[in-house]
Design a protein around this nucleic acid. Structure first.
Ligand SMILES: [Mn+2]
Ligand SMILES: [Mn+2]
Ligand SMILES: [Mn+2]
Ligand SMILES: [Mn+2]
Lengths: 221, 221
DNA sequence: GTCTGTTTTTAGTCGAGACTAAATATTTAG
DNA sequence: CTAAATATTTAGTCTCGACTAAAAACAGAC
């Protein structure tokens, strides 16, 4: 039984929710897919029937082994296409998500593996998210934390974002914050919990608590 | 009113049929789209309503100016993706059509123009078909004919195919026939109208009438 | 344990895009 | 010019994936 684009989007949503919460609730899925709980109930039954998920009424959904494999393949495709769009077509990192959301449904393993090879087997997508390999293994990075958890005096490098919305990414552009860039946390303002980051160039940037909690970093040295 | 994937496929089918026959009949569209005449009638009414085509009951369909522009954009996207798949992802020329058939529906002018630039503004797709530019202008090649129309003694270069089916393209692979390759027609066998082509290497290939009439060539020297 | 608010499911609809069978229009042949 | 053959449209259904409103189940507070 062939899976539809809509069904693939459900699998990806369930993958993301279940890996954070253990189980994907009806309401959470509806919210991610901008749909309604009633529509979700309907689709969950089909996906169960097809063997992609485990689901019991009122209990929420989790992926089966097959569903997990498929979801990881979709994540892989999505992130590889994002790399392609940014690296090869020079798109801005805030513009690629909607296109990748469509491209991820095209072709099968052959296409994604060729794309992967063409791109040189990248490890991370333009937002710092890890790209699963062709076996579905996803490198989990150690010691990644939100910038808001840092202490004054620490050195760190930006390695990802929690919020990939265009609005947030453009805000980071304006602040000059980008993946791989290194800073030292020189000050923390008690009044509003904002932080002062000093780049290697010496330039400083004031970063709000709201922003810092959505920027992922790794400590360095 | 947003156009659907299905509707875009109709526009492309009408474009191809109308440019060959002047008008696209109901039955011909159904045959191209592997659908039924009843379904076509239904869709033609919608496309008329939306301003993409001109259509009167029993009379067949033609594209409006808007429809023509849209169809050419689709052809452009289709062929550019084919170039990408062959040049960058090393697909065989007989494998790319189904993927391009899906990719052509993704994104808008921005994506296709970036892809075009990335590929270096190619003029022809892997099957020798011309790629419309961003204005929708399509370079019509002069002096292109079927190989079957050649006379003995003439030199020529292969520049396209009439049949893009995987079966035919693989057959050409087996015969060693590829785009750009030059031959001289050394002999024509009256019995079954087959031809003997001599490559620049000196190697000869016997080509049936059926094959020759589906290979497009240009005379050289 | 019952009450109450939240979550999920049920029931009934809808639009898009397909289909088949039957009716009608058009074209071709005699 | 009419009759047969062919093409197109009409009428009635179907599946998919969504929706709303109402009913039912569940979970937390007392
Ligand atoms: Mn998607
Ligand atoms: Mn991403
Ligand atoms: Mn298509
Ligand atoms: Mn082609």
């Amino acid at each position: 039984m062939e899976i539809s684009v809509s069904q693939e989007n459900y699998l990806k949503a369930i993958y993301k929710l279940a890996s954070r919460e253990g189980v994907a609730s009806n309401q959470a899925i509806a919210s991610v897919l901008e749909s309604t709980p009633a529509s979700v109930t309907n689709m969950l039954r089909k996906l169960t029937e097809m063997g992609w998920i485990d689901y019991e009424a009122y209990r929420g959904a989790t992926l089966t082994a097959a569903g997990n494999k498929r979801a990881l393949e979709l994540v892989r495709k999505h992130r590889l296409w994002e790399v392609f769009l940014v690296e090869k077509l020079q798109y801005d990192w805030d513009a690629v998500h909607p296109l990748a959301e469509e491209l991820e449904h095209i072709g099968g393993e052959e296409l994604v593996n060729r794309l992967d090879a063409f791109l040189g087997h990248p490890q991370y997508d333009p937002h710092g998210d890890p790209i699963p390999d062709s076996e579905g293994n996803i490198r989990k990075r150690q010691h990644v934390m939100a910038a808001s958890e840092l202490n004054v005096g620490q050195d760190f490098a930006v390695c990802g974002v929690r919020d990939s919305s265009s609005l947030f990414l453009q805000h980071l552009d304006r602040l000059g914050i980008e993946l791989g860039k290194r800073y030292a946390l020189t000050e923390r303002l008690e009044f509003d919990r904002s932080m002062v980051w000093q780049a290697e160039s010496g330039q400083t940037t004031t970063v709000s608590q709201e922003v810092a909690s959505n920027v992922l970093i790794q400590r360095v040295k």
